[in-house]
């Protein structure tokens, strides 16, 4: 068996990233919605919940181009169904589905079917339902679909290059988003980078855990002191927790080593040394909640970008599609009698 098409590897990687992103945003929406229920002051809620939410996605600037106020209605819409937001859940699912369609010869039929089904279901969601029924049913449907996809991918696919490129995308996305989440929430809770007084903003920290899908794992580990230190441990350096940054880095490293070993990508890969470097940095200086966390998380995001760039340069290099309608028109116009 010879190596995979560069374009196909790229599509697989982005399919997985888009799926993971939809899952992250669905979870964020759900947690934010729950938090804002308990906040009596709507304006304070907008500032403490909805604005940081849009900020976490990194699309606050884009948001401000089309919306004046960040509030529940506008933020929920922007992250769920907004076509103009390339990172809204519907855009992610659509992109994942279209990407998967271009590589569906490599995906198990059931994986494609699950992706196509959630795409068709979400496409037919009545827009008013989010306002009426809350975000929970929507978020739940997205997250279930993603779990189903992960289950099918892990349960039915051979551990070949196809599977490894999917895993690379999934964990590259996750590492990046966990770092982003920690950075934004940290700045929000401690705007002056002052020392954290345990307990005062505990509500925020717990919601952060829920956003990271780490709530229950944390409760099991916590010694009862509810110290944010353990929270950082869990989300950043716990190599047994599948949503920690270090866990993600280990998965990425393992897939890269497999690909090198199987001859699917070149040896002495830049991405591999970058991953090892990042992991070492995190384990050496476990970021402390007092002061260094935001900087450290900013650095992790920078590293994630570098890892991605290294992959793009070495294995995703192929001629891009041609711009404009001529290419599409030619492709569409090929007779298939």
């Amino acid at each position: 068996m010879s190596a995979m098409l560069a374009r196909v590897a790229d599509s697989l990687y982005w399919t997985a990233r888009a799926i993971e992103r939809a899952d992250t945003y669905a979870r964020l929406l759900e947690v934010s919605h729950a938090m804002s229920r308990e906040s009596a002051d709507t304006q304070a809620g907008d500032r403490s919940v909805w604005e940081p939410l849009v900020d976490i996605t990194g699309d606050l600037e884009a948001f401000r181009r089309t919306h004046v106020h960040v509030n529940e209605t506008s933020a929920v819409w922007f992250l769920s169904f907004a076509d103009e937001n390339p990172n809204s859940i519907i855009s992610c699912i659509t992109r994942a589905r279209n990407n998967a369609q271009s590589v569906r010869d490599l995906l198990p039929t059931e994986v494609w079917e699950a992706l196509n089904t959630v795409y068709l279901e979400l496409s037919s969601w009545p827009p008013g339902r989010l306002g009426r029924g809350g975000v929970y049913p929507f978020s739940r449907q997205v997250r279930r679909a993603v779990h189903l996809l992960h289950g099918l991918v892990d349960g039915s696919m051979r551990r070949d290059a196809t599977w490894h490129f999917l895993r690379l995308g999934r964990f590259a996305e996750r590492a990046d988003k966990v770092a982003r989440l920690l950075e934004v929430k940290y700045r929000l809770v401690l705007p002056e980078e002052a020392a954290l007084v345990p307990g005062t903003e505990f509500h925020q920290w717990r919601s952060l855990l829920r956003s990271g899908g780490a709530d229950e794992a944390y409760v099991k580990l916590a010694t009862g002191k509810d110290s944010p230190r353990e929270l950082v441990q869990l989300l950043v350096v716990d190599d047994k927790f599948p949503r920690s940054i270090v866990f993600c880095l280990d998965q990425i490293a393992e897939s890269l080593r497999h690909l090198v070993w199987a001859g699917d990508i070149a040896e002495a890969h830049n991405a591999l040394s970058l991953v090892a470097q990042t992991r070492a940095e995190l384990s050496r200086d476990v970021p402390s909640i007092n002061g260094s966390l935001a900087t450290a998380m900013d650095h992790v995001q920078l590293r994630c970008n570098q890892i991605h760039a290294a992959l793009a340069e070495s294995c995703f290099a192929y001629a891009p599609g041609y711009e404009g309608g001529a290419w599409h028109a030619q492709a569409a116009g090929q007779p298939q009698n």
Partner: peptide, 17 residues
């Protein structure tokens, strides 16, 4: 765009070359 011609042969552009 996934195929390229070199020295009178057709090649696929893959992740490994």
């Amino acid at each position: 765009r996934d195929l390229v011609v070199r020295n009178q042969r057709v090649y696929l552009k893959t992740t490994a070359g």
